[in-house]
């Protein structure tokens, strides 16, 4: 079983009308986490085995409250960091960034480098669409699971 966009809209409406701030729903293959005060609502594919180095793609459905703009953003997706390390937007200092806001990405497009004790790990988008936001500053420490970029689905 999987959740459709309409299902999620309905669940969000129910949460919004309820007294609860947070909902964590796990069904076969899908984990849905809604948080009232948070900025994003994400749907994470649950895999039986840990994806080794592949970035986890999280589906940001919409913010529940209070940003109305985000709510209508629809089906953007959060690309989260597969590891803790230092975030670099370009392959080396001075080189152009891998991606800019507005750029199209494919699942195998490299979006950044995450450095762990001088070891450079390339991170791929894992999803197809257009980059709407790049969150960490170049050179910042990113944690495991932290959102790196947001991608809007291709039209």
């Amino acid at each position: 079983m999987s959740l459709t966009a309409a299902d999620i809209q309905e669940i969000m409406r129910l949460v919004e009308e309820s007294n609860f701030d947070e909902l964590l729903l796990e069904t076969q293959g899908v984990k849905l986490h809604l948080r009232r005060s948070g900025t994003s609502t994400s749907m994470v594919p649950v895999t039986a085995t840990a994806p080794a180095a592949a970035p986890t793609a999280a589906v940001a459905v919409a913010a529940t409250t209070p940003a109305p703009a985000a709510r209508t953003a629809g089906d953007g997706q959060d690309v989260t960091s597969p590891m803790l390390g230092t975030f670099y937007r370009s392959p080396k200092p001075g080189a152009p960034p891998y991606v800019e806001v507005g750029a199209p990405v494919e699942a195998d497009t490299v979006i950044c480098i995450i450095e762990v004790m001088k070891l450079m790990n390339t991170v791929r988008a894992g999803v197809k669409g257009r980059v709407t936001q790049i969150l960490p500053a170049d050179g910042a420490l990113v944690e495991f699971g932290e959102t790196l970029i947001r991608v809007a689905a291709a039209d």
Binding site: A50, L84, E115, V116, M117, L119, E143, F144, E146
Partner: peptide, 22 residues
């Protein structure tokens, strides 16, 4: 608190480079 990795210790608490980097 900084999140160093997934729940399994081999992917988080036992990663020497990640721990020192953090």
């Amino acid at each position: 608190a900084v999140c160093v990795g997934p729940p399994r210790p081999t992917d988080s608490y036992l990663k020497v480079e990640t721990i020192v980097h953090a």
